[in-house]
């Protein structure tokens, strides 16, 4: 187990391909306060995510972790610093960095199928109609929503809504999947189920994932690395925790594992230091 005992600002480079895919370099985000002074949210973030790596960013609320993922999505611009995906600078939103939103962000006037179809139509403009329908159906099936495919969002439970959110994001075949507290609004019984489902999908289709969360168990259970942020203002990366637990992972087995508890305690100790 490789727990970096010293707080580091540089990410672990132990994954060979990590430095070539998503690179976040010295990203600073500041907002202008009404009195004209600067409020610095992020004070110099350096992070990389590998092409097939699942990385979680964890921190207390208000530490700027959502701001960070929004910068990667292109929905916000960094005040200084650079984010590159496969060497190309990120300046605006793009479908190769599709996001799953905390509040689902489903369009309420469209059915499950139509919500996913909207995204597929937009991203695969050159594909034939049959191909696009095929992609939509495949992803509805992937999240087990075939029976609810023609329902409207207001007829679905929170867990089902977020499955639509996940299916919509995956259907656009992004290079980097961004999950902004995707399970945050779900109840305690639905959450583990959906976590498992997303993890299973990822196990079958390894790709780069960046997930924001404030749940230590969720972060450790799902990720290859957990990035722990210090509290804002001027939040930075306090520590990066490698999670060498074997995959596929099973929640029940993990509960028996000593290694899991050591990682968990370490992460909790870190977060408590910044309370």
């Amino acid at each position: 187990m490789t727990i970096s005992k010293q707080p580091v600002s540089q990410p672990n480079m132990n994954l060979g391909h990590a430095d070539t895919f998503l690179v976040i370099e010295n990203v600073v985000k500041a907002f202008q306060k009404p009195d004209g002074s600067q409020f610095i949210v992020l004070g110099g973030i350096d992070l990389t995510v590998g092409e097939q790596e699942y990385v979680s960013v964890i921190g207390h609320s208000g530490c700027g972790k959502s701001t960070l993922i929004r910068i990667v999505a292109g929905l916000e611009k960094p005040t200084s610093g650079l984010v590159t995906l496969e060497g190309k600078a990120i300046r605006k939103p793009g479908a190769e960095r599709m996001m799953v939103f905390q509040g689902y962000a489903l369009l309420p006037w469209l059915t499950v199928r139509e919500n996913i179809r909207l995204a597929v139509d937009e991203v695969f403009k050159n594909a034939s109609r049959a191909e696009r329908i095929g992609i939509v159906n495949e992803h509805i099936e992937m999240v087990n929503l075939t029976a609810a495919a023609d329902k409207y969002p207001h007829e679905l439970s929170g867990g089902m809504k977020q499955r639509v959110g996940v299916a919509r994001a995956l259907a656009t075949r992004p290079k980097l999947l961004l999950l902004d507290e995707p399970f945050g609004a779900l109840d305690a019984l639905t959450r583990p189920k959906l976590q498992q489902q997303v993890l299973d999908i990822w196990d079958n289709h390894r790709q780069a994932v960046m997930m924001i969360t404030h749940d230590v168990d969720e972060a450790i259970f799902m990720s290859d690395r957990v990035v722990m942020m210090t509290n804002g203002p001027e939040a930075t990366i306090g520590e990066v925790l490698d999670i060498p637990l074997p995959r596929p992972r099973d929640r029940h087995d993990l509960r028996e594992s000593k290694e899991y508890y050591e990682l968990r305690n370490h992460a909790l100790d870190f977060l408590e230091r910044y309370q």
């Binding site: 996001m99 962000a105 369009l107």
Partner: peptide, 29 residues
């Protein structure tokens, strides 16, 4: 119009006129 809806459209790289027809007006109905 909820910011989320517009952000979905932006991430999908939808042009402005299409956002108006496919997101803004249906959301305002």
């Amino acid at each position: 119009v909820p910011k989320d809806y517009l952000e979905v459209a932006e991430v999908l790289e939808m042009p402005r006129w299409k956002q108006l027809l496919k997101v803004v007006i249906p959301a305002s109905l």
